[in-house]
């Protein structure tokens, strides 16, 4: 077969090989099992948070003393507590509070942390030293103590608790933002921009910030479950919101007292709290991997 040894027409080959096997950050996130599970889980939870209380005919405050501590059943899907209140409704009303406080606190952490960290990184040297030492000192104060003091002074209203939660959280965000900015500052493409004579403002807007957004989003996604948990913990100790408000911490606290005879009162809030925290952490993990720039040839 003579024409086997004829020269190859390479044009067709070259076109096929054009495909790239690199993915963008979003594609990486979507291909992560954990991330998608977390996202789906979170969507379900959010759905119930928004619409859950309307699915029943009860409100979270309806007291019905003839219906106390009923097992989960057809009328009360999650059972009732010792005042006859429907736990399903209370759980999802509690979700609203916990999520609101948690996300709110994480958001404040974000704003304060990003501002503080950026200023520290961009001014550099002396300013950076002073700012970081100050935050180090603040970080050394026991957080729970600080929160308790804050609540004692400012009361335990919704916003007061939200602010209390941010007292220590912002420092973590500030450190992460600062460290990322310092790292990006040293990268070659920033140096290249300096060589071109780019203004500082332009470098910050076009180079530093877009490359730091990834880690900021990831960190926020982790701070939310942390804040939610802390709020629950505070409420559980009786330092957070007070009954008849229905945050998860309060429900869990009430549930513990009744654990022996009416376990569902603890089990449901505990499971939902755990699932929520898991969902956020799973999304955070997937985001962290998706934004990770370690995409080089191996082998």
């Amino acid at each position: 077969m003579n024409d086997l040894y004829d020269p190859l027409d390479k044009k067709q080959l070259l076109d096929v090989i054009e495909e790239t096997h690199h993915k963008s950050a979003w594609q990486r996130f979507v291909s992560s099992q954990t991330g998608m599970i977390g996202l789906i889980l979170l969507s379900i939870l959010l759905f119930f948070t928004l619409f859950g209380p309307y699915l029943t005919s009860f409100t979270h405050l309806d007291i019905n003393l003839s219906n106390i501590n009923k097992r989960p059943g057809m009328t009360h899907w999650f059972g009732t507590d010792d005042l006859g209140r429907d736990l399903f409704t209370r759980l999802w009303m509690g979700a609203r509070i916990s999520l609101f406080v948690g996300i709110g606190a994480a958001f404040i952490d974000l704003v304060v942390g990003v501002l503080y960290g950026s200023l520290s990184a961009l001014f550099g040297r002396k300013v950076d030293e002073i700012m970081m030492r100050f935050s180090d000192v603040l970080y050394a104060v026991p957080h729970i103590l600080m929160m308790i003091l804050f609540i004692t002074v400012f009361g335990n209203g919704l916003f007061s608790i939200m602010l209390a939660l941010t007292l220590a959280g912002w420092i973590n965000m500030a450190r992460i933002v600062r460290s990322k900015l310092l790292e990006v500052k040293e990268r070659d493409f920033v140096q290249a921009a300096l060589v071109f004579g780019s203004s500082k403002r332009r470098i910050i807007l076009k180079h530093l910030i877009p490359n730091s957004v990834g880690i900021i989003i990831t960190t926020v996604t982790y701070s939310i479950p942390s804040a939610i948990f802390t709020e629950s913990f505070l409420s559980f100790l009786g330092l957070g919101l007070h009954p008849p408000a229905a945050s998860w911490g309060i429900l869990i606290s009430e549930g513990i007292d009744a654990l022996q005879y009416y376990p569902w009162r603890l089990v449901f809030p505990a499971i939902i709290l755990s699932l929520t925290i898991y969902a956020f952490n799973a999304i955070g993990d997937a985001l962290r991997d998706a934004f990770d720039p370690q995409r080089r040839h191996a082998l």
Binding site: L4, Y5, L8, L13, I17
Partner: peptide, 26 residues
């Protein structure tokens, strides 16, 4: 280098070889 998934019964260097022949991709 061609991506891993593309490898079949062919010489992996064919797309870059100046002396590639028809048999090299078969």
């Amino acid at each position: 280098l061609p991506p891993l998934s593309l490898k079949r019964d062919a010489c992996a260097f064919a797309n870059r070889c100046p002396q590639a022949m028809n048999i090299c991709v078969k």
